[in-house]
Amino acid sequence: MLLRRESSEERDEHIDMTPMVDVVFQLMTFMLLSSQMTGGELVDVPPARHGVGVEESSATFLTLPKPMPGATEPELLLGHGSGPSVTLEQASAAVAEAAKNGVRKVILQADGDVPHGRVLEVAAAVSQVEGVTVHVGVQEQESGAP
């Protein structure tokens, strides 16, 4: 009957999507603000214009922090920023262990004031391990820098 058809047409209501959109945008804003695209630099690594991105999960981190005025030899930390202090041999062993699990990159987060020779020492020791590539951590250049 026509009456029935018309009445059913009038009841054809859309789902009100406005609250859903609100919630989704809230979520989006939250993700935007909370997501961290680049790792926070815990050591003052030197700035560089060029560089390759390495995922955190695919690399072993070694940290060479800023040498203390009193200390002679900059210590070598395993891990990023704060880790146990290790010797070169222990670091190589850790890298070898990680390489067995398929983590074949090593990132040396070396402070800008660390002697170049020290960085190369660590790099040389670590690269004894078969199939490992060595990277030194850098950070984005400040916008003011040329």
Partner: peptide
Amino acid sequence: FLVTATTILYKTLEIPKPST
């Protein structure tokens, strides 16, 4: 954002292996 939030990229320079 969900997916990319989990992967953190570090900017690095690849250096050649110092010859021993």
